[in-house]
Amino acid sequence: MPTRLLNAFERWRSHRDSKSLPWYEHSYFVLDMETTGLDPKNHQVVSLGWVLVEQGSIQLDTAQHLLLDSAQIDDVSVGIHMITDRDVLEQGRRHASVLRYLRQIMKDKVLVVHYSPLELGFLKSLWQTQPMPALAFDWIDTMQIEVQRRARAQEVIAEGGFRLPACRERYGLPDYQGHDALTDAMATAELLLAQTAHYNHHDPSLQELIKLGGGRMRLSSTEK
């Protein structure tokens, strides 16, 4: 018993210590979701786009763009689309495998999103759709980082000035035409790189980034 406690303490300490390492020593999972609306309770995720940041640069080969076949199969759909029970079963399985894939990739990585209330909310509700093992992770919100930075610099930003394209423009990042989940995930990853490069003339630690705009979260499908 004391050994297990000791080990747990050790894990906690190494996790805490690792957070004081420069940010680029960690891996980041930069995610954007396309949804049917803005309310995680009533709307659904249509697609997920993500890309990983490792050793301080965006690894383009890790980019993914997945369409979720999550639309609820109701009676009308069965009538019109001739969807059978078996199809529903397969859809369900596919849905579950996407989530397992997601969980696998997110493990040991820091989640990065632009505007966390929405993205975290949808992640939470995704986890409710399937019986899933729990997952805890640190997260960073590039929008919150931007809000904090501008507030500290006492800059006044006009309404809408914290949207992704507006934030990017302030760093001279290119204007991207598409707004699918993958392009926005790429755009968020680039913004993160720009923000860290402009952090107080030194490389911030993960801790500092989280303090500026982030937190820790636990996803689980048991709590209803």
């Binding site: 640069s57 965006i58 790189l193």
Partner: peptide, 9 residues
């Protein structure tokens, strides 16, 4: 492009 990385300087 295999293995290409995007960096910020």
């Amino acid at each position: 492009l295999t293995g290409v990385a995007l960096t910020y300087a």
